[in-house]
Simulated assay, not measured.
Amino acid sequence: MNLFDVLQVQHHFGNVPVLDNISFQVKVGETFGIIGPNGSGKSTLIRTMSGLLKPNQGEILFYNKAIGSYRKRDLAKLIAVLEQEGIPPLSFSIEEVVAMGRYPWLKPLADLSHLDEQIVEDVLKNLGLWKIKNQAVNALSGGQRQMVSLARAMVQQPKVLILDEPTTFLDIGHQMLVMDHVREWHQSQDITLIMVLHDLNLASQYCGRLLLLDKGYVQSYGKIHDVLKPETISTVYKTEVIMIEHPVQHVPQFLLTSQ
């Protein structure tokens, strides 16, 4: 069953085209990766898929219904977005920021229920944030703030989690921590994951299917081995690469070669 049907979507800012005739599908329950060079339209695409931007042409169906026909509050119950910038260094505590993810489920002016508080507590404990829940977000490292952003998305309990470059600015330890938590949550909650990733090796290890964008066009789309071909990657990214097989997961991995 298709969760998203993206049908001939075009988007431009002024006279500058960003997305050109984009068509693909995302299936219910899968982990779908969007890759491509800087400026290829990845972030614009997921903003249209989440209902934040309206395409200039084409249509995006979500559960066979036009994404633009949903009320924002209803979409917030179904789709959570972890944006590239994460959360700003706010003076609120970790617990307060994470609890904001429950707001789509609350009645106007209502306080958190016991169930809401329990959901927040469970997520904070699962991500190792419970013991520091009272710390101000502006006192945290970039990696910790990214974990708080992930926690806020998780307590939203969406059917779809969209992550825009979730590992940006993170060291390899925090990269694996975030990606492993996301994968565990995907498996335990049976949600659909859509991830924009710069790192092709992470995309290969954590995604089931990929969409490769280049200059606003779909360059390639499908299973990992069909998209991540060395000749395709070299052409799109304009650099020579060496492809090897991951010794454990048996998926493509890329090494750079000097010119």
Score class of each variant (00 low, 15 high):
48 T>K: 12
247 P>W: 14
37 P>D: 04
80 A>K: 12
109 L>F: 15
148 V>Q: 03
237 Y>N: 09
57 Q>D: 15
45 L>A: 07
247 P>Q: 07
209 R>F: 03
155 V>Q: 09
26 V>G: 00
232 T>S: 09
150 L>G: 02
71 R>D: 14
43 S>Y: 09
228 L>A: 05
98 V>M: 02
178 V>A: 11
2 N>S: 14
137 V>G: 03
99 A>F: 03
228 L>S: 07
145 R>Y: 01
185 W>T: 05
257 T>P: 03
210 L>R: 08
128 G>W: 13
56 N>P: 14
95 E>M: 03
19 L>I: 01
93 S>N: 04
125 K>Y: 13
168 T>K: 14
209 R>L: 07
238 K>Q: 14
96 E>H: 09
216 G>L: 04
9 V>E: 02
150 L>R: 07
230 P>Q: 08
254 F>W: 07
213 L>W: 02
6 V>Y: 02
108 P>F: 09
186 H>I: 08
244 I>Y: 12
30 E>W: 00
114 H>D: 15
103 Y>Q: 08
122 D>N: 15
67 I>R: 11
170 L>F: 13
135 Q>E: 04
24 F>M: 01
89 P>S: 05
210 L>T: 09
8 Q>I: 01
190 D>V: 04
73 R>Y: 12
158 P>H: 03
151 A>Q: 05
211 L>N: 07
68 G>I: 12
176 M>K: 12
222 G>K: 06
11 H>M: 02
241 V>H: 10
40 S>V: 04
219 Q>V: 04
133 K>L: 07
151 A>E: 01
55 P>L: 13
138 N>K: 01
244 I>Q: 15
214 D>H: 10
205 Q>I: 08
54 K>R: 15
109 L>I: 11
74 D>H: 15
248 V>F: 14
217 Y>V: 08
30 E>I: 08
219 Q>I: 00
149 S>K: 01
37 P>H: 06
218 V>Q: 08
124 L>K: 11
145 R>G: 05
67 I>E: 13
166 P>Q: 11
79 I>H: 09
127 L>T: 06
142 G>P: 05
211 L>Y: 06
87 I>H: 05
34 I>S: 05
83 E>Y: 13
242 I>N: 12
250 H>S: 13
83 E>P: 13
29 G>I: 03
180 D>W: 07
112 L>R: 11
25 Q>C: 02
244 I>L: 15
190 D>T: 10
177 L>G: 05
154 M>S: 08
48 T>Q: 14
233 I>G: 02
103 Y>R: 08
42 K>T: 06
246 H>E: 09
38 N>D: 04
50 S>H: 12
94 I>P: 07
223 K>S: 10
